[in-house]
């Protein structure tokens, strides 16, 4: 019962963080800061949802598979973010830095 409640909390918190990240990619002003908003959904949101599912699964093959999915996401998402940022910078997309900040236009 307690495990059920815990996993529900994890699932709902994960879903809420996902929506926050989704709002973030619309509110942040330029590409590089949007990458941070996407980072939220890639790390903590995914962790919470997979943790919530793992609590439902208990010790089984399903839990092992969830752990494996978590590991893949954990290793590949920073690589993808880095590749995106690096490619964008090399192609000459300049980040909008602090000096010319405008309030949350998107």
């Amino acid at each position: 019962m307690i495990i059920d409640i815990l996993s529900w909390i994890c699932l709902v918190a994960g879903g809420a963080l996902g929506i926050v990240g989704g709002i973030g990619i619309h509110r942040f002003p330029d590409f590089y800061s949007r990458l941070h908003a996407a980072g939220i959904t890639d790390t903590f949101c995914a962790t919470l949802i997979l943790l919530g599912l793992g609590l439902q699964a208990g010790w089984s093959i399903a839990a092992f598979k969830l752990a494996l999915i978590f590991m893949f996401l954990f290793f590949t998402s920073p690589t993808a973010s880095h590749a995106l940022a690096n490619a964008a910078l090399h192609s000459g997309l300049q980040p909008r830095l602090d000096g010319d900040e405008r309030e949350g236009s998107s």
């Binding site: 994960g14 879903g15 809420a16 996902g18 929506i19 990240g21 989704g22 990619i25 949802i49």
Partner: peptide, 11 residues
């Protein structure tokens, strides 16, 4: 959770 994820996907 499904609805939240779908909403995020929509965004």
């Amino acid at each position: 959770a499904l609805l939240a994820i779908l909403l995020t996907m929509g965004l």
